[in-house]
């Protein structure tokens, strides 16, 4: 059986909110290392990979591999009933028909309990190769969100060029063009404001802004976002969570010119 207790419902609320517009029905794969999710969007352009390590829960118990096939719209409806600060416990039997969610208020004696019917989801599982990326950029997640939103007003796609000069986000549209360039930057007082660029070779790739803006819904999960790029491979956008847990998005580059 599965029993996983989260100190704050907020974490799961934010994760589900960040991915629910990209993917609809997903398997939450539970085993003794934690709860993982991998799903592609309908167009097979982007892939979400979430890992909530067992250390992110206290306690965490999962004796066998259990796949919880959940419709994220249903999960959102139920999670709306949880206060951000509630303690959230997920429970399921070994061959479950439902997943049970319990929300406990730390301040009052209120306990809410919900069951969500599970679905049988036959999901493709893709192997993601370990990649030595040519460029890795860590930057404030709010800054990345702002850049994507600003450039989407002009164009549907953005080129991300990384060189030793810095990283340049550029777009061209019907009304004109725009770009934002960031250089490495260290803020001793506010490390969340740091921009760190780790480059082994220059990279230039073009991506759909619609997807990037969608990924940025995860911004509230982490002050920093990491972008990993290599020529002609998908972009990795990573939001690191506590206890080595993470929410990652992969986006296939645009091809041709």
């Amino acid at each position: 059986m599965l029993e996983a207790r989260l100190e704050q419902a907020n974490l799961l609320k934010k994760v589900v909110d960040a991915i629910k517009d990209l993917v609809q029905d997903c398997n939450f794969d539970c085993n003794d290392s934690g709860i993982a999710l991998q799903a592609m969007d309908n167009s097979h352009v982007a892939l979400v990979s979430m890992m909530l390590k067992s250390e992110s829960f206290s306690p965490f118990r999962c004796d066998r591999n259990i796949a919880l096939g959940i419709n994220l719209t249903s999960l959102t409806k139920v999670l709306r009933a949880a206060q951000n600060e509630d303690i959230l416990t997920l429970k399921a039997e070994d061959a479950p028909d439902v997943v049970n969610l319990v929300f406990e208020s730390a301040e009052s004696d209120r306990i809410s309990e919900y069951d969500i019917k599970l679905m049988d989801i036959d999901q493709e599982h893709l192997g993601i190769p370990e990649t030595e990326y040519a460029a890795t950029i860590s930057m404030p997640s709010a800054e990345f969100q702002r850049i994507c939103r600003d450039l989407m007003a002009l164009s549907e796609s953005v080129s991300i060029e990384c060189s030793k000069e810095g990283v340049k986000f550029a777009c061209q549209g019907d009304i004109g063009s725009g770009s934002v360039t960031l250089r490495s930057h260290t803020n001793v007082d506010k490390p969340e404001m740091n921009v760190e660029i780790d480059l082994t070779e220059p990279v230039s790739l073009t991506f759909s802004l619609k997807y990037l803006v969608g990924f940025c819904k995860a911004s509230s999960l982490s002050g920093q976002v990491k972008l990993c790029l290599s020529n002609e491979v998908p972009l990795l956008v990573e939001y690191a969570l506590a206890n080595n847990s993470y929410l990652r998005f992969y986006l296939a580059p645009k091809i041709g010119d």
């Binding site: 493709e124 192997g127 998908p234 645009k254 091809i255």
Partner: peptide
């Protein structure tokens, strides 16, 4: 025009 690649062409089935 720029085409959109598929994520499946980059990752293998596991």
């Amino acid at each position: 025009p720029i085409g959109q690649g598929s994520i499946k062409s980059f990752f293998t089935h596991s």
